Amino acid sequence: MSKKLTTSVAIFILLVLIDQAIKYGFVFLNFGFESDCISLVLAYNYGVAFSMFEFLSEYLKFIQLALIACILIYLYFNKEVFLKYYIPISILMAGGLSNILDRFTYGAVVDYVYWHCGFDFAIFNFADVIIDFAIAIILYMQYKQYKEDKKRA
């Protein structure tokens, strides 16, 4: 358990630092890039995905912290879940908590990747990408487990 926990904490810290460094660059160092398909431009998201619930912007950071606390409590009482999924959980928590940190630091989530090739897509950031990546890993692990269970039955 301690090796997995140490690995989990290391992944978490590394990803939060990477995400926050990139966001710092956009906020304070004027990072940016324009092209025909993708632009890197600073934007603030006061809501959640696709700016939904923007009207709750003052409360979202606390709502999201409460959800993270619930997840941590669940994992504390279900250690086998953490032990099985510790890598994607670390990635997921890093992305989520980094975006919550933005809400406390900047008043909104810092987004900067704007896809506009053929169609306009929501603007997003590295934390959003790693959250999606973590969910994809969990889904893959679940599918793999399902196939193994089906083969045994």
Rank of each mutant, 00 (worst) to 15 (best):
S2P: 11
K3W: 11
K4I: 05
S8G: 14
I13Q: 04
L15A: 08
L15W: 07
L17S: 12
D19A: 06
K23F: 02
F28L: 13
L29A: 08
N30G: 04
N30L: 10
G32V: 02
E34N: 08
D36P: 00
S39K: 14
L40Y: 04
V41N: 10
A43F: 03
A43N: 05
N45H: 10
G47W: 06
S51V: 10
M52N: 09
E54P: 01
E54N: 01
L56D: 01
E58A: 15
Y59D: 11
L60S: 04
L65K: 06
I68T: 13
A69Y: 05
I71T: 12
I73N: 13
Y74G: 06
Y74M: 08
N78S: 10
L83S: 12
L83N: 15
L83Q: 11
Y86C: 09
I89S: 07
S90W: 00
I91Y: 00
L92F: 12
M93W: 03
N99M: 12
N99P: 00
F104T: 04
A108L: 07
V109C: 03
D111Q: 11
Y112N: 02
V113Q: 02
V113A: 04
G118W: 11
I123N: 00
I123Q: 09
A127I: 04
D128K: 13
D128M: 02
V129C: 08
V129Q: 11
F133H: 06
F133K: 05
A134S: 13
A136T: 07
A136F: 08
I137F: 12
M141I: 10
